[in-house]
Write a protein that binds this DNA or RNA. Structure first.
Length: 550
RNA sequence: GACCCCGUAGCUCAGUUGGAUAGAGCAACGGCCUUCUAAGCCGUAGGUCGCGCGUUCGAAUCGCGCCGGGGUCGCCA
């Protein structure tokens, strides 16, 4: 619809004296009384032309000739809006397009096959995933889905570090718990990982290797513990992600950047450009000359790099692998690292604008109207696994996606658990199940035999207000997917699908589907199937299931 | 102290990148099931968009200054 109007308007705009850079945009007015689509182009033009906006609008409209079977009315309103009304038939006759596209409806080519990477979760294998990781997993995976649906060539990536101090601590903790199984007096490291999961891993180690590991020299034993714990923890991480439908294409090991010399390489490059220098036994990056407040250490006086250096090397690696667009999904606690990394890759000659950093705020778990305090020490720590056990994977994913990324998310566990109309997940899924039920009924009555049989349905027979409104909304789905993908804000899609479900429930309430008039029944079945298609495709992007019955 | 996010109905949150009379869900109140799923629909009530200046045809949205909540500021990641 937008395309149709844009084609007709663009030539007229030039006649009226608009420059080539004039932005022609259409919006869906909030009020129905303002038409189906509106443009403020006359108002934006008025400024540059130094003319009265209503006169400009009048000028445009008088030159406009539109197909009367598509556009029923054009009006100039308010300060200079041009409002358009479409005929109902223009909308309803397109319903069969949705059926024809089926599971592909909503896919677009907006991304032009751009090679795109989405990095998310990226937790080191030192413990089970938290609720916060869960939000990140849902957001990252859904963004990846959105980009894929809009024609990007997407790689889903998980970056991790299995070396360094944290992993050393993991090894020591595991070793201590293992030794304690034979000697309860064996000392546990001061700053070790307290969680019970370490004890479980130690027991598994004992079950597989017996006392053998205790007899090894310490360093060797720690190595065994480390790789054993890492392997177990990674398995657990992958399992819980799989429960949420999250599967990564690539697990990128930070260590590989050391082995292939990339880390040294980046340092050498910085030195060559005069952007790195030695001071107090450490190597500093001249971030102050890159527009940042102060210089930062990239190699400690101990010889170990700080996190910045591998992060920069990793991002350069992303560019080298040919990604045109890189989306990094991080929690709010990582916000401080971003400017350094972006400045670093810019200094290395890459375009930091190709990196989109999505920072999500924290999750607060609410139970019985009270905040669940999260503390690793006090063992009140709720893992992602436990949350899924408690409320189910669909609710977890949907709740994590329901709010804008920059908002703190209050997760009401009672609500998520509730199997009722109060729960937004069920509201959406119920619409889908309800349609499935209608189709089953129609099949039993012998009036429905699959999508193919509806291809010839005369959907212009859908003339009721609720029917037209639903059809209109369904046809907006591809635009909605595109807009959501462009904004990297998945919650927009949850809101749209809620609207679609509401429009369907209203239609269902107003009209009986399986009616004696065969052609009307076919048209309504087509509308039902189109709704089911949009909901199912939307659920697929969000990563929740589309139940046939509830 | 500096920087980032948030502040909108009793509660949880939207608000299409500056548009027309600020919306949804829940909670409250009142209606609608012998008919394809009532896990649904319809209606009523509920607002100083934190506060104050400014920018312009026009501000919840942009700028500046306050107030409040959360987060980050290491040779930790």
């Amino acid at each position: 619809m937008k395309r149709y109007l844009a084609e007709h308007l663009s030539s007229i705009l030039k006649e009226v004296g608009a420059g080539d850079d004039t932005a022609l945009t259409f919006e869906k007015p909030k009020l129905e009384a303002h038409g189906n689509l509106t443009t403020n182009v006359a108002m934006t033009l008025a400024k540059s032309l130094r003319r009265n906006p209503r006169q400009v609008a009048q000028d445009i409209v008088s030159r406009l000739t539109l197909d009367p079977t598509a556009v029923s009315r054009v009006e100039i309103a308010g300060p200079g809006f041009i409002n358009f009304w479409f005929t109902d038939a223009f909308t309803t006759r397109r319903v069969t397009e949705i059926l024809a596209a089926g599971p592909e409806f909503g896919r677009t080519a907006a991304g032009h096959g751009r090679k795109t990477q989405v990095e998310y979760v990226s937790a080191n294998p030192t413990g089970p995933l938290s609720v916060g990781h869960g939000r990140q997993a849902a957001i990252g995976d859904t963004i990846a889905n959105l980009l894929s649906w809009t024609g990007h060539d997407v790689t889903r990536e998980y970056y991790y570090n299995n070396a360094g101090r944290q992993m050393r601590k993991l090894a020591e903790s595991t070793y201590a718990r293992y030794r304690q199984l034979y000697n309860s007096g064996f000392p546990f490291p001061e700053d070790g990982y307290q969680g019970d999961y370490i004890k479980e891993i130690a027991e598994q180690l004992k079950a597989e290797r017996g006392e053998e590991v205790a007899r090894l020299p310490l360093e060797q034993a720690l190595d065994v513990c480390k790789s054993f714990a890492e392997q177990r923890l990674f398995q657990a991480i992958k399992n819980v992600l799989a429960r949420m439908g999250v599967v990564h294409d690539v697990f990128f090991n930070e260590d590989s950047l050391y082995h292939n010399g990339e880390i040294e390489n980046v340092v050498a490059e910085f030195r060559r450009m005069g952007l790195a220098y030695d001071q107090d036994g450490a190597v500093w990056l001249k971030t102050s000359s890159m527009g940042l407040e102060q210089d930062r250490v990239i190699i400690k006086s101990t010889g170990e790099p700080t996190y910045r250096l591998p992060d920069i090397a990793y991002h350069r690696e992303k560019f080298r692998r040919g990604f045109d667009l890189v989306v990094d999904v991080f929690g709010a606690d990582h916000i401080a690292t971003i400017p350094d990394v972006l400045a670093g890759i810019k200094a290395l000659g890459y375009d930091p604008d190709k990196v989109k950093v999505v920072i999500h705020q924290f999750v607060t778990l609410m139970q019985g109207g009270e905040q669940v305090k999260m503390s690793k020490r006090l063992a009140t720590f709720v893992t992602l696994d436990e949350l899924i056990d408690e409320v189910g994977a669909d609710a977890v994913r949907f709740f994590f996606l329901m709010r804008s990324i920059s908002s703190h998310l209050e997760f009401d566990m009672e609500l998520a658990k509730e199997q009722s109309e109060k729960n937004p997940v069920y509201y959406l899924q119920y619409a889908h199940a309800r349609i499935a039920s209608i189709l089953r009924f129609a099949e039993g009555e012998g009036v429905f035999a699959g999508a193919q049989a509806l291809a010839g349905a005369d959907t212009t027979l859908l003339t009721g207000a609720a029917e037209v409104a639903l059809a209109k909304l369904l046809l907006e789905f591809p635009d909605e997917v595109e807009a959501t993908a462009a904004s990297l804000e998945p919650h927009r899609l949850t809101a749209y699908l809620h609207e679609a479900a509401t429009a369907f429930h209203k239609f269902y309430h107003d009209h009986r589907v399986v009616v004696p008039e065969k052609d009307v029944a076919q048209a309504r079945l087509a509308l039902c199937l189109a709704t089911k298609t949009v909901l199912a495709n939307g659920f697929k992007i969000l990563g929740i299931t589309a139940p046939e019955r509830m």
